[in-house]
Design a protein around this nucleic acid. Structure first.
Lengths: 159, 159
DNA sequence: TTATTAAAAGACAAAAAGGTCTTTTGGTAA
DNA sequence: TTACCAAAAGACCTTTTTGTCTTTTAATAA
């Protein structure tokens, strides 16, 4: 499971990109509300993402967050590495420090292909590609605990 | 990524079962050393596993931990549910509270099959089946930070 | 240039995870 | 029955994660 920061970052970025596609620049309060995350915490996380260089921001009236037009897409893999640190993607698929074909753990044989699928997924998919998918579909709002959300709760690949 | 408790539990249980196969009942100190985990913390975790009913223990001289002979195998899935709580296996493959065929997140289509493989793996494999694999192979010791380990560092399925 | 808006910065606090240690309890063997 | 051994119980501590809030800085519009 990802830590919350990764979860909120992932959801937040996809939401921001989705709004960008509609020529909008959402702010922290809007983002937090739409992705169902704590507002102040969301603000802090978005700040970090800006410092990472993943995202641009503008202060003042009409300000908000947006992706720089020229930049290449941000893969999930890069985002996850940034927010999760060494926790994730530590060589072997299991988080084992020392597990490979020569020193396999008893799960190695069966998990290796799964691991590869995951690697493929997170390196091929990007924040932008996910936002595009949502943009094209325009999902109907769903209700959770008396709140309505139109934005899909993207993304917590966990186990 | 699993929390440490799950990681140590998984490794510890497989190690204990492996020793049981050799008619031994290892104690906390031995287990901790072999799986490279903090001794006191390992003790606490093994205690919890006994309370869960996954494992038996015997106090006093010659005491230690062992699996009750009659009992059915313990699937990884059951163990993980116990140690991780609601964190894991929350319906949808992504940890999304509300994501399915009808309300898919933009990753749903590509992650669903991965998720299924993982579910299959953790429900089919058991502590005992993993221990058997190790038992039959008797892996050569590997060296990590000037320490030698013969027991494979099982199991931290993470992303 | 002033008022307003919104992000940046950073202090602070609460909760959860990770880890340590001491005391108690229940066995074993001599 | 005594000495000893090893797990059980639980108090306690540290670190990390999660979350809140205030102050500062920068941009915009009037």
């Amino acid at each position: 499971m990802f830590i919350k920061e990764t979860e909120y970052a992932l959801r937040g970025l996809v939401y921001i990109k989705l709004q960008n596609l509609k020529d909008r620049r959402p702010g922290t309060v809007e983002v937090a509300k739409e992705i169902d995350a704590p507002p102040f915490f969301t603000a802090k996380i978005l700040q970090r993402l800006v410092r990472f260089g993943f995202l641009e921001s503008l202060k003042g009236k009409g300000g908000g967050f947006f992706f720089a037009p020229g930049k290449p897409d941000l893969s999930l893999s890069k985002l996850i590495s940034a927010t999760e640190g060494d926790r994730s993607f530590s060589g072997c698929g299991f988080g084992l420090k020392h597990c490979d074909k020569n020193n396999p753990c008893p799960l190695h044989e069966k998990y290796a292909p799964i691991r590869e699928s995951i690697n493929k997924l997170v390196s091929e998919e990007t924040i932008q590609s996910l936002a595009e998918k949502v943009y094209k579909k325009e999902l109907s709002p769903i209700e959770i605990k008396n709140k309505k959300f139109r934005f899909p709760f993207v993304v917590l690949i966990y186990l």
